[in-house]
Design a protein around this nucleic acid. Structure first.
Lengths: 258, 258
DNA sequence: GTCTTGACTCTGGTATACAAGAATTTATAA
DNA sequence: TTATAAATTCTTGTATACCAGAGTCAAGAC
């Protein structure tokens, strides 16, 4: 998986970013990280440079390396990328998707509905634990399968980057009352039904609607956090770790060129 | 503009890539470039690393650094990114565009039409010279203005990267007979008219159609080049250099983080 | 003539030394 | 006590030295 030390450093830093051990605005130091990873500054520098290109870190010469602050504008931009790309992917997928892939999407919808039902019957205020894990992993897998179907590797890379971006905000996986959960399932199902009818325009429409919904939830969460003076929430419950692992695995199909 | 040596190296390498001095498959060497730029390997390495993330170069440990080979699949993927993002940008732009921006788009359409007319009257088989320059610069400015209107900096960055990608293929700016030129103008005009009507769906539709057209032309050119055994055409006429300069200026709004 | 083998060269990966500016701390003066 | 200035520490930027693996080529064995 990880070839050279620079890749190792990249993975470890990114993991710390997503897990919340490194928070927005934090000042980090090349030498500190180097010591921590037991390597020299050189590979750490390369990893930082890469994360800088991806917008997660930024460096000020002779001052330090900092974790980028999430901003409302950036949150919106990230979700808009998802709308544009995943919407187009759904449009394209409609004309090329196989019966097998459709069946798989159907299964994922069923799993999500089952998780939603179990949640309702659990009488909990927020979805959590094993039920949440089932829901989120099927949610993610649904999106990934559509991206894969669209047969554009850059779509997948782009979206996985955006997902990590929003993970870093620490918002979108929290705040899951039943109505929101139900609506997520419903919109997934509408995308699925549109794909079954090979109706690309509607598939795109429902996909965009779904992602716009998620954006609204994330923005509301963001605004609330700003007011609460607790602008950043590390992901410390194990559910999110599971999703994080899935994400990492998907992204870690490293830059394999010809 | 360019702060440290690593940025300088980045610009110079990228310029060589776009101008065709470095061709697909070429093997380059960190030390050679370092000598050429009169700097050490370190900043050159950072520049290469960045170009690698962007997919323009790739490195094989202990073997060498190579210029990525353009492939048909990658050409398609790049144009699909443009369809997805520029299409969405047009959709969003329709609801937020100002009257001033609309007037500017109108002027750009007029300029393109005038260039097309001058081309027709010149009786040349292919557009070239000052007329081509006018046409291309208004073409590019039209797309950029819509992206800017959509107010998503990542859209702009993404598309400028894609433009450079296709520039490297050395295809899309050649092969410009009158019918194709006319159609480019026509579709720009339709996008413009849809934006004037605030009809986002149609603006997106015509934008997608336009980019799909361009993709077809580029693919045809690519296939022909493959048959001719001349898979790569450096950009050596000064028109393309003009557009290159515009692109570089637009992209070189460097990664300014908070 | 063909194949094998070994030396040699070239490559990128890594560690480290130093430079120069930013940030912080300490010392000094009022 | 406060304000200013000097010294120190810490940061990234750059250059360089060394390493190990890949590729090349020529000498030798058959």
């Amino acid at each position: 998986m990880a070839g050279d030390l620079s890749d190792v450093a990249y993975d470890r830093i990114r993991e710390q970013l997503i897990s919340g051990r490194l928070k927005a605005g934090d000042k980090i130091s090349e030498s500190t990280l180097a010591q921590q990873f037991n390597v020299s500054r050189t590979p750490v520098r390369q990893a930082i440079r890469r994360l800088q290109v991806e917008g997660l870190l930024y460096q000020v010469p002779r001052s330090g390396t900092y974790v980028s602050r999430p901003s409302r504008a950036r949150l919106i931009e990230t979700y808009e990328i998802r709308m544009a790309v995943e919407g187009f992917a759904a449009l394209k997928a409609a004309s090329v998707i196989t019966r097998e892939a459709l069946r798989e999407l159907g299964r994922q919808c069923d799993n999500m509905r089952r998780a939603a039902r179990d949640f309702r019957e659990s009488k909990q205020p927020l979805m959590s634990g094993e039920i949440l894990e089932r829901f989120l992993s099927n949610d993610l897998a649904f999106h990934v399968l559509i991206l894969k179907t669209a047969e554009n590797s850059r779509f997948t890379k782009l979206i996985m980057g955006s997902r990590i971006d929003t993970m870093m905000f620490g918002t979108h996986t929290h705040d899951r009352p039943l109505p929101h959960i139900s609506r997520v399932w419903l919109l997934h199902h509408r995308v699925y039904m549109a794909l079954r009818r090979r109706d690309g325009q509607m598939a795109r429409h429902w996909m965009e609607t779904h992602i716009r919904d998620s954006m609204r939830v994330a923005l509301a969460q963001y605004d609330r956090a700003q007011i609460d003076q607790s602008p950043y929430r590390p992901l410390d419950d194990d559910m999110d770790k599971t999703v994080l692992t899935m994400l990492n695995n998907m992204v870690s199909a490293r830059g394999s060129q010809q």
